[in-house]
Design a binder for these strands. Structure first.
Lengths: 343, 343
DNA sequence: ATGAAAGCGCTAACAT
DNA sequence: ATGTTAGCGCTTTCAT
């Protein structure tokens, strides 16, 4: 029962007219007589004719499809970005293909290649954590495929970029903790070869300096996942008696740290105030609800897609690149109310 | 600088040979002389030749691409399923296009149409909550596109299916609560036109009956999202004094219910024991950690993709359908320890 | 107002 | 061992 989809040629044969007439009739070409148009359109409707997108794309070298390459779909931030991208994309007649690299460099290379092979009109990329080679990005340029980086941008490649102001976000969160009375704040940091790791750490230290607080390297612990926190639990607990605040590079790290401290008899936020980064839905589920900075994923996605369309449709000069920066906003909840008891 | 990608024709012209020779040389055809092969392959490598997947697919009417249509990417269950699908797919030389419907029927129709237009080799679908018309699924069959439903299957369409045993999972969770001493258990239920809603409720009532507990309709509250729980908070609080357990249709609903109860002075699990369904990462983040049943998303994804490949590659009879069922497993945590205090 | 022909990039039957 | 041709489905110039 695997019936081949009907083609323009089929319609032409059945109706006893030429393929070109069918093609024109279907798109209301003025040359075609109303009678023929009527005939063709009605028939096409009846047999549920659908143009073959492959053939269309091959002919026009335009797929109306863009590729999205991201580390992990499951993170709230990335899925907000995807929603932003998709809403703009669909509105402008583009389809989006999502590829997740699972933070795997090899997969990133393969995914990009597959997108290029399938002649997508443009690509939106957020780099994997393990990417240190950039020739696969350079190849895109050589192939004439427009690219916009977002969030995890590649500094070595000149291109449009859309980012959250990680430095400022970290600074805001840290100043908030200081405002709540914290004097000795620990930072749970991401790897420093990642821009977000570097910028958030620098925002953190900048806030400390501004308020003339000591910036103790011992208080900077490298862990940026839930698992990493549990692996470093001993280090955190050893320092816990000295500190009164934690700023974590993301929400899951912040939440895991709260759990580690609570299991060791500390009360949050009474003994130690905590702030995270990202504002996913976890922040509300956490106990106590987590103070964090909101990253505006949806806006970032929209902006990235708009920039990409600018390049695809040639409304922007080819070598003219732009960087859009979104400043995060503090979302204050219970976890940062130093000294307060929570039920 | 938008250089068109190089084609076989280009190579042929430059090397002064015919396109067919180039094509054959590139795929090690035995007819071609080693010298020519060497020449062509080296050159192709040098200019970074890549076949145009569009042209390939058009010619072979085989795209080596499958479509995934799911309600929401962000849910842990669905992203596990995607990982399972992708791992099998890549291993067998298929690419996957992910479409999220956002539980929107119209979007589901559009996404499926786009996939068919792009001639994917097969489609994996988990239905949107708001889908009550099924002609768009029937059209797939008419177009000869193999489909496998998973999790949110469509009863009205005969096809391969991969599901979690929701009835049994709900029964296991409910019996667990009963075993912990619960006598009056509330159920937070999903809409009954959804199979998962129906099956989980029936698993719940079946466990009650088995243990000769009363099944009170007042204890069945319709809410299956975090927001819905807050909307029904008054109803839940009104009944809270009577009950000693809650079985929720999913984890976020269970967690929201715990929060509502806690904010109203109830202690979990001392006063009321709670169990959820799904075992996403939230279950660990919740306070107290949530007892729930694990849905085996990764396995379901793998199984669904394997079934789909069977149909695509014709190793399975066309009208021969299979249903694979995965039984969830209980993951016992703190939220269900009725009578116990948690710090 | 309609049709014939060519071509998007590729491959495979059919020459030579 | 290599080249010529035709065709996948579609559109569009160029006839008529």
């Amino acid at each position: 029962m695997k019936s081949q989809p009907i083609t323009i040629k089929d319609i032409a044969r059945i109706l006893g007219i030429s393929p070109s007439t069918v093609s024109r009739a279907l798109k209301d070409h003025p040359d075609i007589s109303p009678k023929t148009k009527q005939l063709v359109q009605t028939f096409a409707e009846k047999v549920n004719y659908r143009p073959n997108a492959l053939a269309l794309s091959l002919r026009s070298s335009k797929t109306n499809t863009i590729g999205i390459v991201i580390p992990e779909i499951v993170h709230h931030f990335f899925s907000s970005v995807i929603s932003g991208i998709e809403d703009v994309a669909y509105g402008r007649g583009y389809n989006a293909i999502i590829c997740q690299t699972n933070e795997n460099y090899q997969r990133e290379v393969i995914d990009l290649q597959a997108l290029v092979d399938n002649r997508v009109d443009g690509i939106l990329v957020s780099m994997s954590k393990n990417t240190h080679e950039f020739t696969h990005f350079e190849n895109l340029r050589e192939n004439g495929v427009p690219v916009v980086f977002f969030d995890r941008i590649c500094e070595q490649i000149s291109s449009d970029r859309v980012i959250a102001d990680d430095f400022e976000g970290a600074r805001i969160a840290t100043k908030h903790l200081i405002g709540k009375g914290c004097k000795k704040i620990m930072h749970l940091a991401a790897p420093q070869h990642l821009l977000i790791g570097k910028n958030r750490k620098e925002g953190f230290t900048s806030a400390l300096k501004e308020h003339k607080l000591v910036s103790d390297d011992r208080y900077i612990i490298k862990c940026d996942t839930r698992e990493a926190v549990f692996a470093k639990a001993d280090d955190i607990i050893r320092l816990a008696p000295e500190i009164d605040g934690i700023f974590a590079v993301n929400d899951s790290t912040a939440i895991a740290a709260m759990q580690v401290l609570q299991r060791n008899g500390y009360s949050i936020p009474k003994d130690i105030a905590v702030a995270g980064f990202g504002d996913g839905p976890n922040a509300n589920i956490a106990y106590p609800p987590l103070t964090t900075v909101e990253q505006k994923g949806y806006d970032i996605g929209q902006a990235a897609m708009r920039l990409l369309i600018g390049h695809i449709e040639g409304t922007v000069e080819d070598e003219e690149f732009e960087t859009k920066i979104f400043t995060p906003e503090l979302v204050e909840r219970t976890s940062s109310q130093l000294g307060h008891n929570v039920r």
